[in-house]
Design a protein around this nucleic acid. Structure first.
Lengths: 233, 233
DNA sequence: GACAAACACGAGTCGTCGCTCGCATTCTGA
DNA sequence: TCAGAATGCGAGCGACGACTCGTGTTTGTC
């Protein structure tokens, strides 16, 4: 019974195979990041990984599967490495700090994994890839909604969703500028992005947050100290 | 010798040819907008225009030339139709109104010419197309700088440039959301975009603008009344 | 009407790319 | 040790898309 799993992978991978898969995904990340998904050829990925095209297809049924697997691993990486950044915001944290912390973490991740942006932003995704693309996007939107809804308790759900979409779009736009620049310029754009998001959200959150802060000072605080001051590596 | 012009088009177009060109560009706009530049096939463009592939190549040397010509015509259209929106802002106009007016005009143009966004935003542009792409982008960046610099007189040029880039990026991000939605949702996103830009710029412009307004009330105003109140169709 | 140039056609060429196939090599388990 | 599975190779297939070419039609000019 051990090898009978529905009707998918009856393939028992060896250690070598797992290594090859990791190698191929790394190569794919490099090629996707530099040329985009559509323009990336499977032969180029195989070449980058130092294997033959046939070997690539030993591990992935088609080009889409590579991008999908890559996207899933990236999401998993992000969850394990930055899970705490996705947790609901402690109402006691000033909005400016919360935004800055979240931006720092996500920017950090995206700078270390530039493919992620390509997979999230690439409009040139055919077939089933678009579904995965949307799945990634919707997951993040939902996360942002979860972050925002405690801060916007008196807004209808559609409004919160809209605000989340705007935040995501602003973040993506800022990220594009940031990834396209280097050094001091990059840091300056990071600061601009924080400013944009804070200034956009602050009037929406309004006195609600300040009320909560005033209240939390006199009543029992929550878990508190979730946010650390800009410890981006 | 009468037809010897350098070494380019020694071709004398007939009225029919001009019509075909317009027809082909319209078809190209449609196909580019719906599938993106890279995924658009010249055969599809020819089919959309109701002509044969050979006819298409009677008027355009290659696929790039179609997109380039289209981009240039769109820029020209924008200049003639919305030139006044690109003029320097009258310092007497409140920032919120100036931003709203500019956004309305550009959104209007982009909603009527969705290809423009595709050509500006498409990352899948090979070869010489990228240059034209950048040229369009830089033209707009310069325009935004010209709009902003009177409002930010005490900032270094690099800072103004950076702010212009941020504004462009924010606009593009908002535009993407707006083009992807319809009806009330679309209008709501337009308002959000205006809010984002105004809230981002207002603290930067700061008391400078308010000073200018106070001053212009007592001293001789500039050319004045350049901006009209939200007359978007 | 006659001639040339512009216009129009669409089957066909040529290159690229996703993917396959037959075969060789290495690993696993008994 | 050795069968069978997993891994590896790379020439090549099939499809598709940019672009061409030979040929026929329309238009402007004398």
């Amino acid at each position: 019974m051990p090898t009978h799993q529905e009707q998918e992978q009856p393939r028992r991978r060896q250690a070598r195979g797992e290594r090859r898969i990791a190698q191929l995904l790394e190569a794919a990340a490099s090629v996707f990041a530099s040329t985009g998904y559509a323009s990336a050829s499977t032969n180029a990925i195989a070449r980058e990984a130092g294997v033959s095209p046939g070997t690539l297809y030993q591990f992935f049924p088609n080009k889409e599967a590579i991008a999908i697997e890559l996207g899933q691993r990236l999401m998993a990486d992000m969850r394990t490495a930055y899970g705490e950044a996705l947790a609901p915001i402690d109402p006691a944290t000033p909005l400016e700090q919360a935004v800055a912390a979240a931006v720092d973490r996500f920017i950090d991740f995206n700078c270390h994994n530039p493919v992620f942006f390509t997979l999230m932003h690439g409009p040139d995704v055919p077939g089933r890839m678009a579904e995965e693309h949307d799945a990634l996007h919707n997951t993040l939107i939902t996360r942002v909604e979860d972050l925002l809804s405690p801060l916007l308790p008196d807004r209808p759900a559609v409004a919160v969703t809209r605000i989340a979409h705007v935040c995501m779009a602003l973040y993506m736009a800022g990220l594009e500028l940031i990834l396209a620049s280097e050094g001091d310029d990059r840091e300056a754009y990071v600061q601009e992005l924080k400013d944009v998001l804070f200034r956009y959200l602050d009037p929406l959150v309004g006195d609600r947050l300040r009320d909560a802060q005033a209240a939390s000072a006199s009543t029992a605080p929550m878990t508190a100290t979730t946010a650390t001051p800009t410890t981006a590596g």
